[in-house]
């Protein structure tokens, strides 16, 4: 028996919008720790890892570990039927081939339940080793989204370079080139508007902008984003979900032959 009640149901709606472009089908894993997902995109270039900790739910009952295969487009269709202020409860019985999403309006005057068929998905769970990153950039998530969008109108790839001067995003295409430098800026009114660079040593990596733009679908989940970079490792683009967990995207770099 599984029963997860999330008062801030809009979080779940935003999570689905954040991952459904990248991944078509995925297993949602439920354990005492929380509600999680790990999946690669179809070309195995990017990986998304989601965690919603059990403590973040108003009610969390998960009698045994359960893995539920879902088509994310279909989950998104169901969750779009929930109001933005609705409380969402996810329910499943042991051995059942369906999951139920229950939506309650804030004043309890409307209650809806949507039952969705589960699917069998063969997915490989990857071990993500703890890594010391050469540079971690924290910046406003909206600023990062703007940079990725702007650069993708010029080129297909971005070189992200971190030095003590700041973080530079560069691209080149048929019509020309573009460079955007963001300097460390801690002296802002609100901490979420700061750009903070923790650098052990300079690092420069090349990535496909198409994937980074897909990651920015998570922007509504968090005011800030952190970008962790090391030579010869996938970049980690993390959006924290307040008090609950995170959506992390890993993107394999482009490597000179």
């Amino acid at each position: 028996m599984l029963e997860l009640r999330l008062v801030q149901g809009s979080l779940l709606k935003k999570v689905l919008e954040a991952i459904k472009e990248l991944v078509t089908d995925a297993n949602f894993d439920c354990s005492a720790t929380g509600f999680s997902l790990q999946a690669m995109d179809s070309s195995h270039v990017a990986l998304v890892a989601l965690l919603l900790r059990s403590e973040g739910f108003e009610h969390y009952r998960c009698d045994r570990n359960l893995s539920m295969g879902m088509n994310l487009g279909n989950v998104s269709k169901m969750l779009r039927c929930a109001g933005s202020d609705d409380i969402i409860t996810i329910k499943a019985d042991d051995g059942s081939d369906t999951v139920t999403f229950m939506f309650e309006s804030p004043n309890q005057d409307k209650i809806a339940d949507f039952e969705m068929k589960l699917m069998d998905i063969d997915s490989e769970h990857l071990g993500i080793p703890d890594a010391e990153y050469q540079a971690i950039v924290r910046m406003p998530s909206g600023e990062f989204a703007r940079i990725c969008k702007d650069l993708s109108s010029i080129g297909d790839t971005v070189i992200i370079s971190v030095t003590k001067e700041g973080v530079k995003f560069s691209t080149a295409g048929d019509i020309g080139t573009a460079n955007i430098v963001c300097r460390q800026n801690k002296t802002v009114d609100k901490p979420e508007e700061a750009t903070v660079i923790e650098m052990q040593e300079p690092v420069s990596l090349t990535f496909a902008l198409r994937y980074l733009n897909s990651f920015t679908k998570a922007t509504p989940l968090s005011e800030t984003v952190s970008i962790s970079l090391s030579s010869d490792l996938p970049v980690v683009v993390e959006y924290k979900i307040a008090d609950m967990g995170y959506v992390r995207y890993y993107l394999a770099p482009k490597i000179e032959e």
């Binding site: 195995h44 769970h125 071990g127 490792l233």
Partner: peptide
């Protein structure tokens, strides 16, 4: 040019 690597080059199946 640069070649796109894949995630499984870096992270192994658990």
């Amino acid at each position: 040019g640069a070649k796109q690597s894949i995630i499984t080059n870096f992270f192994k199946i658990a």
